[in-house]
């Protein structure tokens, strides 16, 4: 786990860095609040933070307040270090948003156990976040999360004026799968489809389970023609790679896919855009299944 150390004193940074490394963490260093905020803006931001109270520029408590104002829902465990003592300092640090507080000069063994406690809370929060945002069976995003990512992708596409396509995929005759192979067979088929999706998508594409056997795939920086290519790769992979239950039993599957490319001039909002892809899926179902239809 990465630990962000924010301290203007080079010697303290060096000492803390060596210590947290010894305790099995990866130190990430910042000399001041500005550097810390830049690190916290990256995708691989640390979630366990050791922040010095007194720094030139933005102070530790002000940095805490800035971090707590973030609206992206990310959790950060903040341990504040300070030369101050007494209840007033503890109250000020905690009210600013610190989770824990340690007065300098501190015993490194105490810091070690406090950091260990903080890392347990960060892991717990990450587990809860995982449970709240992932589909328990397939481990792709759940409906709540894919809706949120969908809204973010539309905002990003609007801001950058970049292409963005969405794909709605439904497994054909899935009820028949459950009736024939039981629910465990159906579960295996769903997991298999998500594996194929993950194998055939790019790192920045997103997959979410929208309903029973329906999936939504977000394709940033992708126009309808490129989306068609991705969809065809997925459709054929699912058709020609059946779900293997055991040596004697396999489930043949096909999927229908609806595609729409985001068009700012006609998609008034997220649901209007989604509806175009969903209608295309409906057309794919109505015209024989195992096919891809692109919204005009």
């Amino acid at each position: 786990m990465d630990v962000l150390i924010v301290d203007d004193d080079a010697i303290t940074r060096f000492a803390l860095s060596a210590a947290v490394e010894e305790w099995g963490f990866v130190p990430v260093l910042a000399e001041n609040a500005d550097q810390a905020l830049k690190t916290l803006a990256t995708e691989t931001t640390p979630h366990l933070l050791i922040i010095d109270w007194s720094m030139p520029g933005m102070s530790g408590p002000d940095l805490c307040k800035t971090i707590r104002k973030r609206e992206d829902g990310q959790f950060f465990y903040i341990l504040m270090l300070t030369g101050k003592e007494g209840n007033e300092a503890i109250i000020e640090a905690m009210e600013a948003g610190a989770d824990d507080f340690l007065s300098k000069p501190f015993d490194h063994r105490v810091l070690k156990v406090r950091i260990a406690a903080g890392s347990r809370i960060v892991r717990l929060e990450q587990t809860l976040n995982q449970l709240a945002s992932r589909d328990a069976l397939t481990q792709c995003w759940n409906r709540r999360m894919i809706d949120e990512l969908f809204a973010n992708s539309i905002a990003e596409s609007t801001r950058k004026r970049s292409k963005f396509s969405v794909m709605v995929l439904d497994i054909d005759h899935f009820k028949r799968v459950n009736d024939t192979f039981g629910h465990s067979g159906g579960d295996a088929a769903l997991k298999h489809v998500v594996n194929i999706l993950n194998t055939n998508l790019r790192e920045y594409d997103q997959v979410g389970r929208y309903g029973g056997e329906e999936f939504v795939i977000l394709l940033p920086a992708t126009d309808r023609n490129e989306a068609w290519g991705v969809a065809e790769r997925i459709r054929s992979a699912i058709q020609f790679q059946p779900t293997i239950l055991n040596d004697d039993l396999k489930i043949e599957l096909t999927v229908s896919i609806g595609i729409a490319e985001f068009d700012r001039s006609r998609d008034a909002n997220q649901s209007a855009f989604f509806e175009r892809a969903d209608k295309a899926l409906y057309t794919a179902k109505q015209t024989g299944r195992n096919r891809i239809i692109c919204s005009e």
Binding site: D7, D8, D9, I11, T12, A15, D52, S54, G83, K104, P105, F106
Partner: peptide, 10 residues
Amino acid sequence: VHRLKSALGN
């Protein structure tokens, strides 16, 4: 003074 104090804390 605070800067030196911080370093001395180690």
